[in-house]
Design a protein around this nucleic acid. Structure first.
Length: 552
RNA sequence: GGCCCGUUGGUGAAGUGGUUUAACACAUCGCCCUCUCAAGGCGACAUUCAUGGGUUCAAAUCCCGUACGGGUCACCA
């Protein structure tokens, strides 16, 4: 029996040869320096914040160099797949501005000519290349059962040896063809492993675009390439797919760093041109003193949905991730406050080579606050409405009912050089402006209570607001007139109309202009801390101000 | 346990042998401004770069050891 026939026997029913597949996926015709990369998730439907970072970098690097970023679904482990997992990942990533030039575009369709982009649809391809290795005597059938494997592992750890199937533990390595054929004909199940040519005591130099040149031992483990169900392992699929899809750069999380020798060896055995690697450090958190990777299972904030549900703008999340990815991004944004994130040039060299960055929530909120402050009133209105539609019916109702009024509220101290910065997230909005809407004011005023500060005497309060509304307030006053009227009110009632006078002779006055303003402010809104009082009064208007004052 | 990577302030970090009395940003604290708040302005916050040695006229930067942290060792990805 020839090697070819033997390979056919081990992996029967393969439709094409590896040469045919090579011909089907020619080299890409792209400009010099173009990066072809990919994002390759399992279809779990879950988008981890770290995964968003990696996929974002993939799309940026491809776009920056005139290259290609494609999406590949790694569904070789059935247990990880969930229904509609693919479309939910795609939709989520796209909503964050990550773009794909090729790959699945829905549960069933895909675009691009290097597909299929879903690994379970590529079974024939993997087998064709596995057959190549078998023919060349670089791979073999292994019958090691789960029990045997466990036994080997137990023995190895007892004698403090390295774990794995290598050297003398690779006992099916030299089985004769006849014996293999016999055992298979007897119904024994088998898998395909490589015949690793490596020597653990040889060091190889591997290059990582972020971490630099690393020295690692050669792989000598007879890694599984085809599982008993005929589906390839990640390692094998990675080599085949990234070669055939003509990937130039693999950008992935650094948990893969230690399998690099394996991957490099696989490329060599297959005769593939090596790809370049960039391993991204994980986002971590401090969990009671231990620093660990953000975990999908333990940490709700590992999911990007956590932040969008909390009302953090997606754009702000991306700005934060960009500052984590390349720390010079922040300085660039400072120089180009209106710059688009897509105009920044990311560099591998600027990515952190450390073993992880602590996820910094206050920093995210700071970025988010600044981002929202730069938005126009219309943008804030739209975004808040969008948020409220999903999470706050009551807020949604008033926003929809009073669009122009709402925009006027959002416009207070906005759209100017140094805009007001009081929203960290859209979920903050309601807490800051509910009192501007009669519906919400009536509902919540008693719940929160009137927050009078230094002046709490009811008669005095009534005296101040009544005098004010009757004699000193006009909707049409400009801001200067408005304030000078407040000062006149102070003079009339015995309060200091400017703070300096008050500080010099506090005993000459009942209080000061700040106290008086606070009475007006609280009587109008119940709150002692609000945006500019002049703007609030003007928006609410004299008639309604009177109504509110009458409630006191 | 083996292998690999990493270690600059509360946080992210700049820094690749002399121009570093260690940039910038967040957080914190103080002062100023101010009708409240949010801001804004100014200032404080690492005499030192995990640690011990070495190389050098000179080290956060180069070399070696140690400690600590992280990752990884599946028919998971």
């Amino acid at each position: 029996m020839t090697n070819k026939e033997y390979a056919d026997f081990l992996l029967p029913g393969v439709k094409h040869t590896w040469e045919e597949y090579e011909a089907m996926y020619p080299e890409r015709n792209l400009p010099e320096g173009a990066i072809v990369t990919r994002y390759a998730p399992s279809p779990t439907g879950f988008v981890h914040i770290g995964a968003l970072l990696v996929s974002f970098l993939c799309s940026r690097f491809a776009k920056q160099t005139g290259g290609i970023n494609f999406l590949r679904i790694e569904d070789t482990d059935q247990e990880r797949s969930i229904e509609n997992g693919v479309s939910s990942i795609i939709n989520s990533l796209i909503s964050f501005g990550v773009t794909f030039d090729e790959g699945p575009i829905s549960e069933t369709e895909e675009k691009g000519s290097y597909g299929p982009y879903t690994q379970t649809k590529r079974e024939d391809i993997y087998k064709a290349f596995a057959k190549k290795l078998i023919e060349e005597d670089k791979a073999y059938a292994s019958f090691l059962s789960k029990e045997e494997l466990e036994e080997i592992r137990a023995r190895q750890s007892a004698s403090k040896e390295r774990l794995g199937i290598y050297g003398r533990y690779a006992k099916d390595r030299n089985l004769s063809k006849e014996e293999v054929i016999n055992r298979i004909n007897n119904g024994e199940s088998y898998i395909i492993r490589i015949k690793s040519p490596g020597n653990f005591f040889n060091k190889i130099k591997v290059n990582d675009l972020i971490k630099g040149t690393l020295e690692m031992p050669e792989n000598d483990i007879d890694e599984v390439i085809i599982k008993s169900d005929g589906i390839p392992t990640y390692h094998f699929a990675h080599a085949i797919d990234d070669h055939l899809m003509r990937t130039t750069h693999v950008i992935r999380g650094d948990e893969w760093l230690s399998s690099l020798p394996k991957h490099i060896q696989l490329f060599e055995m297959l005769g593939f041109k090596p790809v370049k690697y960039a391993h991204i450090a994980p986002l971590t958190k401090n969990d009671n003193g231990t620093i660990r990777k953000l975990s999908k299972r333990k940490d709700p904030e590992a999911s990007v949905d956590y932040f969008t549900n909390a009302g953090v703008p997606k754009e702000a999340i991306m700005l934060y991730l960009a500052t984590v990815a390349n720390s010079n991004f922040e300085g660039w944004l400072d120089q180009n406050p209106n710059g688009n994130i897509d105009d920044f040039k990311f560099e591998f060299k600027k990515c952190s080579a450390s073993s992880g960055s602590l996820f910094d929530l206050p920093k995210l909120y700071n970025i988010s606050k600044n981002y929202i402050s730069r938005l126009t009133k219309d943008e804030v209105y739209d975004a808040t409405l969008d948020y409220a539609t999903k999470f706050d019916e009551e807020l949604k109702d008033v926003l929809v009912k009073y669009p122009d009024y709402s925009k006027a509220i959002f416009n207070i101290e906005r759209e100017q050089k140094k805009p007001r910065k009081d929203y960290e997230k859209y979920s903050d909005v309601k807490g800051q402006i509910w009192y501007m809407y009669d519906e919400l004011f009536t509902k919540y005023k008693d719940e929160y209570g009137y927050d009078y500060q230094s002046i709490t005497d009811k008669d005095e309060i009534r005296n101040i607001i009544n005098t004010y509304i009757d004699k000193y307030y006009n909707d049409n006053d400009d801001k200067e007139t408005w304030f000078s009227n407040i000062q006149k009110l102070c003079d009339e009632l015995g309060y200091a109309s400017n703070m300096k006078d008050y500080k010099e002779n506090p005993d000459n006055y009942k209080g000061n202009v700040a106290d008086v303003s606070t009475v007006i402010r609280v009587s109008l809104t119940t709150r002692s801390m609000t945006p500019d009082l002049y703007e609030l009064l003007k928006l609410i208007g004299k008639e309604k101000i009177k109504e509110r004052f009458n409630l006191i």
